[in-house]
Amino acid sequence: MKNKLFWQRAGAVLFALVLWQFAAMALGQQLLLVTPVKVAGRLAELVRESAFWQTVGFSFWRIVAGFLLALIAGAVLGALSARVHAIEVLLWPFIVAVKSVPVASFIILSLIWLQASSLSVFISFLMVFPVVYFNTLQGMQATDRQLVEMAHLFKVPWRRRLLYIYLPQLQPFLLSACSVALGMSWKAGIAAEVIGIPSGSIGEQLYEAKVYLSTADLLSWTVVIVLVSVLFEKLFITLLKRAFAGLERL
């Protein structure tokens, strides 16, 4: 089944590349759209430069840091809100504000408060936090109340309740949250870098490609963002599933 899905997706990617190639050839304007062959060639040139890996690392670690901080904060506060209704009520206006206000507004405000180099960490955190918080809250609220009451009645230790009642219930909610939030963190983090233009970031490279009308560079860096985002998502979700499986065996 997995092999079939892999080949289906590979075929879809190939179809998209062929469509892109024909569209670029039909348009005949490299300033507007270059072919995937030219993008691949430019990407091959970039990966041979040490500055390329430094740039990818600069953005990667900051966006991942924002995601992980939001994952921890969202999971902890979501669990606390499920147990203490007052916390849920107090957090409600902040969560609604973060969900409703456009990311561009937060980026511009953050430029007043923070250095440009820290911008992607903060913006990634803001975009991921509500997703993890609400999923954790829903997962905790969906836990079987009778099972929880029985655990209290028989004085089951908190560690066992966490391992055998709460974590199995939270697993699908957290996996879903992470799957959605990882893509959001990269989109928001790179958008923050494009506006804040921190030196040595992917956002700076995208901005310079736009200024110099270098479509090949613009699309090459876009491909890099997609690849890094997808690969990290696959790796993180796999590790998270293994972590849950390991906890269940304890």
Rank of each mutant, 00 (worst) to 15 (best):
P157T: 02
A44R: 06
A16W: 13
E204V: 02
R9P: 15
V230R: 11
L231S: 15
S100T: 06
K4H: 11
R48A: 10
W221L: 01
G196Y: 03
R62L: 02
L14T: 15
K210H: 08
V37S: 08
A192W: 04
A243G: 10
A86C: 05
G74D: 12
L31N: 12
E88P: 04
L90T: 04
V223H: 08
F6E: 03
P168S: 07
K234Q: 14
V101Q: 04
F232I: 11
V211G: 09
P172R: 06
V180E: 15
W53S: 00
E204D: 15
V121M: 05
A79F: 03
I237M: 14
V34P: 02
S50Q: 10
F173R: 04
P157K: 06
I237A: 07
V128M: 05
R159G: 05
A16G: 13
E193L: 02
L167M: 06
W61A: 12
Q146V: 07
L247P: 09
K155N: 13
L31V: 08
I107A: 09
P93A: 00
L126E: 14
A23F: 04
C178W: 09
A51I: 00
A73V: 14
I190Y: 01
A177I: 02
A40I: 04
V128A: 03
M184R: 09
Q146W: 04
A79D: 07
A73W: 04
Q29H: 09
S105F: 13
L71S: 12
F125P: 02
F6M: 14
K4Q: 15
F244Y: 10
A51M: 01
L175S: 06
W221R: 00
I63C: 08
S120V: 02
G183W: 09
Q8S: 14
L167I: 04
S199H: 10
L119S: 04
A44M: 11
L126H: 07
L239T: 14
I225F: 06
L27T: 12
G28V: 01
V226M: 07
G66V: 07
A82V: 03
Q115H: 11
L227D: 11
A44S: 11
F232M: 14
A104K: 05
S100Y: 03
M25V: 14
V37L: 11
G246W: 10
E49F: 05
F52T: 05
S120C: 07
G66P: 15
L14F: 11
A73P: 04
I95V: 15
W53I: 00
Y133L: 06
I195T: 04
W158E: 15
A70T: 01
D144M: 00
L109Q: 01
F236I: 08
